[in-house]
Computed example of a mutant assay.
Amino acid sequence: MPTVGYTVLPSGRLNLPESDDAAAVAAVQAALAGQGAWYRPEASPSNGTLVDLAEVARASIVRDGDWIEFGYDDEGDPKWSNRATAFYVAIAPFVRSGTVQIEGEDGASWSYTYADGQITQDGWNGWDGSVEPFGDHVDLPSPGQPVGG
Rank of each mutant, 00 (worst) to 15 (best):
M1Y: 07
P2S: 12
T3W: 01
G5M: 07
G5V: 06
V8M: 10
V8W: 06
L9R: 13
L14G: 05
L16G: 06
L16C: 10
D20Q: 14
D20P: 00
D21N: 15
A22G: 06
V28C: 11
Q29A: 15
Q29V: 13
L32W: 11
L32K: 05
A33Q: 14
G34D: 14
G34A: 13
G34K: 12
Q35T: 07
G36I: 08
A37Y: 06
Y39T: 04
R40K: 15
R40W: 01
R40N: 15
P41K: 11
P41M: 12
E42V: 12
E42W: 07
A43G: 00
S44T: 15
P45V: 00
P45M: 10
S46I: 00
S46R: 15
S46Q: 15
N47R: 12
N47A: 14
G48C: 13
T49R: 14
L50H: 09
V51W: 08
V51P: 09
D52C: 01
A54E: 13
E55F: 14
A57H: 11
R58A: 15
R58I: 00
A59W: 10
S60A: 14
V62P: 01
R63K: 11
D64H: 11
G65R: 11
G65F: 10
G65I: 11
W67I: 01
E69G: 00
F70T: 01
G71L: 02
G71M: 02
E75S: 12
E75R: 12
G76W: 06
D77C: 06
P78V: 10
W80R: 03
S81A: 15
S81M: 03
S81E: 06
A84W: 03
A84I: 01
A86K: 07
A86T: 06
F87K: 08
F87R: 08
V89A: 13
A90I: 11
I91V: 15
A92H: 08
F94N: 07
F94E: 06
F94K: 03
V95G: 01
R96D: 13
S97W: 03
Q101V: 12
E103L: 10
G104Q: 01
D106G: 03
D106H: 09
S111F: 02
Y112R: 03
Y112K: 00
T113A: 13
T113V: 07
T113M: 00
Y114Q: 07
A115S: 14
A115I: 01
D116L: 02
G117V: 10
G117R: 05
Q118E: 15
I119Q: 12
T120L: 05
Q121C: 05
Q121A: 03
D122E: 13
D122Q: 14
D122C: 01
N125A: 04
N125W: 05
D128A: 03
D128T: 04
G129T: 04
S130G: 11
E132Y: 03
E132L: 03
P133T: 05
P133N: 12
F134P: 04
F134V: 03
F134T: 02
G135A: 07
D136Q: 14
H137K: 13
V138F: 03
V138I: 05
D139S: 07
P141V: 04
P141G: 02
S142W: 04
S142N: 02
S142Q: 10
P146L: 04
P146K: 06
P146M: 01
P146I: 02
G148W: 03
G149S: 11
G149M: 03
